[in-house]
Simulated scan of single mutants.
Amino acid sequence: MSGRIIYVGAYTGEDEEGITVFQLQNDGGKLKRLHGIAGIANPSFLTLNADRTRLYAVSEAPDGDGYIASFAINSKDGELTLLNKQSSRGSAPCHVTLDGEEQYLVVTNYSGGNVVLYPVEVDGTVGAAAQIIAHSGQGPRHDRQEKAHPHSSIMSPDNEYVIVADLGIDKLVHYRLDRKAGKLIFHRETEVLPGAGPRHLVYHPNGELLYALNELNSTIAVYNYAAADSTLESIQTIAALPESFQGTNTSADIHLTSCGRFLYASNRGHDSIAVFRVDAAGLLALIEHVPSGGRTPRNFALAADDQFLLAANQDSHSIAVYSVHSETGQLVDLEHNLNIEAPVCIRFLL
């Protein structure tokens, strides 16, 4: 094909097209719709397996249990075929992570306050929940931290540990993945600044640094990561917002380029993508803030070769397309905004 395949998850009803497949043209960054699939309500987070044959999505039901859906991917055009669904065993599932050996899925239920481990069958379907772990506690923000709110999880580079970012209790909770037992074993907790509200995490390609985006105080925390015992040492906290901003903001998503030289974070309220340079020690220095091309950039994605960045602007119902300067990391708006209902997650297939 003449372009890259991307998937977009959106806040939609079950009878509406929730996941849409687009082609991003290599010669200018225009987006062309290929197909879509209905039958899953609010597919707010998507993840892909390594060889791009399976896609997993959460269905974010805010009140009752949601579910996890597994799809087979057509290698020619990216079309999806539903394989199966499993209950999320908690309300508002907002994130799903596939372990490096593709044996397990980890799902975080934001409103349910729990973390759920699922086996992945040989055919790519999701098995029944193997373990449900309830988090407890609260933070100083009574409006957002009245109880535990696990928001995301990430596998360690060596595939031995899972770290869960819990926005409600201001902690990064470490678990060891016991593959034989099919369980997550509690290992340790890393406390973050009170009221920070950790949301999403990303490892540096060298495996020795972890970056945590804090939603509530709009900061990025940088940690040295020791793989031997999954320990974190805080080395920097930097604002994701310009000093002059006086409005209300919640930071949302964070990504690194594949070379590890540049880091990006999205701001909802300021409606921007913050661009940072990463030095040899892993510390961040601000390069620029770029308008996200719409309102409420909940999620964004970098192409595997770092040539493009796509921002999903939930409340303006649009996706903005940027090219990425390979030497400076700066973003150039290609002015190819695409209209789509409430986009909240973007994933590159190719």
Rank of each mutant, 00 (worst) to 15 (best):
T250P: 02
A57H: 08
G127V: 09
E341G: 12
A72V: 08
Q307Y: 10
A10C: 15
E79G: 14
V126T: 09
L284D: 11
L117Y: 10
P140G: 12
A196N: 09
F300K: 08
Q131M: 07
K180W: 02
Y203P: 00
I169N: 12
Y118K: 06
V116M: 06
G13F: 04
I6H: 07
G36R: 03
T53W: 07
L177Y: 01
N49K: 11
S234K: 15
P194M: 12
T108Y: 01
A240T: 14
A134G: 13
P198I: 05
V278C: 07
Y161W: 14
P150W: 07
N214S: 13
L48F: 00
Y322Q: 02
P291M: 00
V106P: 07
G195C: 03
S44Y: 07
A129G: 07
I163Y: 10
S44P: 02
H270F: 15
L241S: 02
S152D: 10
I254E: 01
Q246G: 01
T248C: 02
S75A: 15
H317M: 04
S88L: 10
T20L: 00
N299Y: 09
T47M: 06
T237S: 12
A301H: 00
D99S: 07
V290N: 03
T237I: 14
G112N: 05
S234V: 13
I287L: 13
V58P: 04
L349Y: 10
L184C: 01
N249H: 03
I273R: 03
H289Q: 14
S251G: 01
E191R: 13
A226P: 00
E60H: 09
I37W: 08
A221G: 13
F308P: 00
K171S: 13
P198S: 07
I254C: 05
V58K: 01
N109Y: 09
E16M: 03
L184H: 05
N313V: 02
E335N: 15
V324W: 01
V344W: 04
K183W: 05
D279W: 03
A181C: 09
Q86W: 02
Q23V: 12
D27G: 15
E335V: 10
F186Q: 07
G90H: 12
Y223D: 05
D27A: 13
E288L: 10
G64A: 15
E102H: 07
D65A: 14
T97N: 04
T81E: 15
A61Y: 12
I6E: 09
T190K: 04
Q330C: 13
D279G: 11
M155K: 11
R188W: 02
L216Y: 09
G36W: 02
E14W: 06
T108F: 07
Q86A: 03
I169D: 11
A274F: 07
Q314R: 14
K180E: 15
L213V: 12
M155Q: 15
T190G: 08
R52Y: 09
S91V: 10
D170T: 01
A41L: 11
D306H: 00
V162K: 02
D229I: 10
R199N: 09
A61L: 13
H174F: 15
M1I: 12
P343C: 06
A280V: 14
L334H: 10
L210S: 04
E17W: 01
